[in-house]
Simulated assay, not measured.
Amino acid sequence: MRIFVTGASGWIGSAVTAELLGSGHRVVGLARSDAAAATIANLGAEVRRGGLDDLDALRAGAADSDGVVHLGYNHDFSRMADAAQTDLAAITALGETLAGSDRPLLIASGVAGLPGRPATERDTADPGVHPRVANANAALAFADRGVRTGIIRFAPTVHGDGDHGFVAVLVSVARERGVSAYIGDGGSWPAVHRLDAAELVRLALEKAPAASVLHAVAEPGVPTRDIAEAIARGLDLPVKSIPAEDAPAHFGWIGQFFGLDAHASSEHTRELLGWTPRHQGLIADLDAGYYLKG
């Protein structure tokens, strides 16, 4: 298949691009900048210039494809409403272009904010947690218009060598504060290795039915205390618990996420797609020193 990928140069997107190419698919990656275009080209994919707000580029990319993976998103937490509006417009443009074709359209979302322990693929996410949740729900509506839509809810931690996401921020906070902390008695974070997540995306493109909700979760809940202790081992720092009321001052913006106590199952996803995560877990990645460079 010829797959159009937004966010193809990003942390997850570059792994997805490599996975698709390695499995015999062709990839066209959306690139706003010269640097993004170079990354995509170096992976062996075609480049389509444009950004998420370039709806003509999105429509053209979707029209010239056998399916779309929409991973691009503006993660500027100071402009969440604007980012959500841009994302919704992009999803609408992609979905309308694919309407009536039965071609796949996969949209990235997250497991944060899901009810239940563990949360399953059948649970409905709370749009109040993040506006991206509402956009994912809007994408599912295109299943009624002849689009093989799928929502992939990624674990909050998609880890591996080179990750600059949440865990890397926690490492930076620990360095700055001189202590590796967790909140209260500690919660838990679902996690998935980047390469396992990329394989799931490929499998979903190839065989997930319309209106599928999938969980890119390998570890249902890694204790946040274990995460803090692993960071402490790597940086040779003490570990301590921070009261919840002191978390914003200690952690900054990431405190609201690190304070979550979330478990998420991927049992249905594994059964549906035959997906079996096989790469090492989050604590093993921390102990390998990937997050402690620099």
Rank of each mutant, 00 (worst) to 15 (best):
residue 1 M to I: 09
residue 6 T to D: 00
residue 8 A to M: 04
residue 24 G to S: 10
residue 25 H to G: 02
residue 33 S to N: 05
residue 35 A to E: 05
residue 35 A to I: 03
residue 40 I to R: 00
residue 47 V to E: 02
residue 47 V to P: 01
residue 50 G to D: 01
residue 51 G to F: 05
residue 61 G to H: 03
residue 62 A to S: 06
residue 70 H to A: 08
residue 70 H to Y: 09
residue 72 G to T: 05
residue 78 S to T: 14
residue 79 R to T: 02
residue 85 Q to F: 05
residue 85 Q to D: 08
residue 94 L to E: 01
residue 103 R to P: 00
residue 106 L to A: 06
residue 106 L to G: 06
residue 113 G to H: 08
residue 118 P to W: 15
residue 118 P to T: 13
residue 119 A to I: 13
residue 121 E to M: 10
residue 122 R to L: 13
residue 127 P to H: 07
residue 130 H to T: 11
residue 133 V to G: 02
residue 138 A to E: 07
residue 139 A to G: 15
residue 140 L to R: 14
residue 160 G to T: 11
residue 162 G to E: 01
residue 171 V to Q: 01
residue 173 V to D: 00
residue 173 V to C: 02
residue 176 E to L: 11
residue 185 D to R: 15
residue 185 D to T: 15
residue 193 H to D: 01
residue 196 D to H: 12
residue 199 E to F: 06
residue 202 R to Q: 09
residue 204 A to W: 08
residue 211 A to V: 12
residue 212 S to K: 12
residue 212 S to D: 03
residue 213 V to G: 01
residue 221 G to Y: 13
residue 221 G to I: 14
residue 222 V to Q: 06
residue 222 V to D: 03
residue 226 D to C: 02
residue 228 A to V: 12
residue 228 A to H: 05
residue 230 A to W: 07
residue 231 I to N: 02
residue 232 A to Y: 09
residue 235 L to Y: 09
residue 240 K to W: 03
residue 247 A to S: 14
residue 252 G to Q: 07
residue 257 F to R: 08
residue 258 F to Q: 07
residue 259 G to E: 04
residue 260 L to N: 04
residue 262 A to L: 15
residue 266 S to N: 10
residue 267 E to V: 15
residue 271 E to A: 15
residue 280 Q to V: 09
residue 281 G to N: 10
residue 283 I to Y: 02
residue 289 G to K: 12
residue 294 G to H: 13
